[in-house]
Amino acid sequence: MPAVKLPKWATQSVSRRHEKLIQAALFLCAALSVLTTAAIILVLLTNAVYAPGAKTAFFERVSLWEFLTGTHWKPVDGESGRFGILPLLCGTIMVAVIASVVSVPAGLGAAIYMSEYAASREREFLKPLLEILAGIPSVVFGFFALKFITPWILKPVLGLFGVNLQIFNTLSAGIVVGIMVTPLIASLSEDVIRSVPRSLREAAYALGSTRFDVSVRIVVPAALSGILAAFLLAFSRAVGETMAVTIAGGQQAIATLNPLQGAQTMTGFMVHASTGDSSADSISRMSIYAVGIALFAITLTINIISGWILRRYREVYQ
């Protein structure tokens, strides 16, 4: 032992010090994600709620009440601008609801089929198939809705009933968004369904249940929290879905609940507004941040609820 007590860093070998340095660098990488979230919130707040400096934030010009309850969305500069988010919200909710109507039965049915019915070889064929469907870009689905589903499927079918369909309509947008989120629901639900223990199924079979009884009365209730969480996640994905609804849903912000008409969604408006050439400080440009904060708040809330359900109501089996 030396008489002089050296500081800790000097007694450590070089490799130990490097070790600490590398670990710190890796920690910084991981911490970058927290910085991203902070930056998103900061950017949205400083442009929508309170802007430091010369800029005026959106809610300093338009009251929160007017934004939340107004039924007209006309994002232009000057006197005639109207900033009520309800029309955009209508469009978004309509797309997400139609998408759920399509994707919940399809996704859940696929999950039940893959875990309860399909042989393992069939599963190995079906799973990549759903992954391929999930990997197709959003613009492709937009094109498919606008150029195929609307003119070649919906128009002839609805025409039989004498219903008139517009070229841009929320129905086709909702259907393709439903197709897009089906793989998500299927794979998440399948995971929870497969984690239901085999003993429960066997007990039910021993009591004389049919496969239908086992699937619907045993497995699905046992996995219900996970299925609900998957559904909520898919709903929030549908709310944030952008290119497909922008292409197929049209650019008119009208407060309507008629899926045969076109209606702009929140995301659709943001795309439309950023392709326009308004100056950076104008209220029409600032309205992007206000809609953005609404979109961020809605999706984040749904995701948090989904995670909470998953943790709170998870059935733990031995």
Partner: peptide, 16 residues
């Protein structure tokens, strides 16, 4: 935070 970031719509990153 990471699990929440995965659910943020990509258009919000565009704003950022």
């Amino acid at each position: 935070n990471l699990s929440n970031l995965a659910g943020v719509p990509s258009i919000v990153y565009g704003i950022l």
